[in-house]
Simulated scan of single mutants.
Amino acid sequence: MSRSYVRACALNDVPEEGVLAVDVEGTRVAVVRSGGEVHALKDNCTHSDVPLSEGEVYDGVIECWLHGSCFDLRTGKADGNPATEPVPVYRTRVENDEVLISLTTDDQGVSQ
């Protein structure tokens, strides 16, 4: 499967152990830097339809600010109630200090 990557933001715009909300081709994406890696998730909690980008990042998860649901940065898997459904994640690349994201999803709905 051929993937196309598009620019999401400059790497320096994403804080270490933090998150930046961006719009990529009409999709709201939370770009996260954690543990020296860059991750991208759909910027929407599957429990409450609020932006994950307003939450906290720690220990490889992003925590929704409203009810405390946590999502694994690598897989999007919900890691605690009240959310039970995963959030889509997208493949990322960093080239020339730019974060590139592929919005193409695999058969499982996850671009990992």
Rank of each mutant, 00 (worst) to 15 (best):
N44V: 04
S34V: 00
A10V: 01
N12K: 14
L100T: 00
A21K: 11
D23M: 10
D97S: 15
E98D: 13
L52N: 04
E16H: 11
V14W: 04
D106L: 09
S48Q: 14
T46C: 09
E54F: 11
R91G: 08
A78G: 14
E56D: 15
G35Q: 03
D23G: 06
G80F: 00
Y5H: 04
A78L: 14
A78H: 13
S4C: 02
L52M: 08
G80R: 00
V99R: 03
Q108M: 08
D59N: 15
H47M: 07
G36F: 05
D79P: 00
E37I: 02
R91P: 02
I101A: 01
I62N: 01
T105G: 01
V29I: 13
G18C: 02
A30L: 12
D106V: 04
N12S: 15
P86F: 05
E85D: 12
V99I: 13
S4Q: 06
C64D: 01
C64P: 01
T84F: 12
T92Q: 09
C9L: 02
P88W: 09
S2D: 11
E54S: 09
V24Y: 00
D13R: 09
C70F: 07
D13F: 05
A40I: 04
V38C: 07
V61K: 09
V32H: 04
N81R: 13
H47D: 10
L103E: 02
S69Y: 09
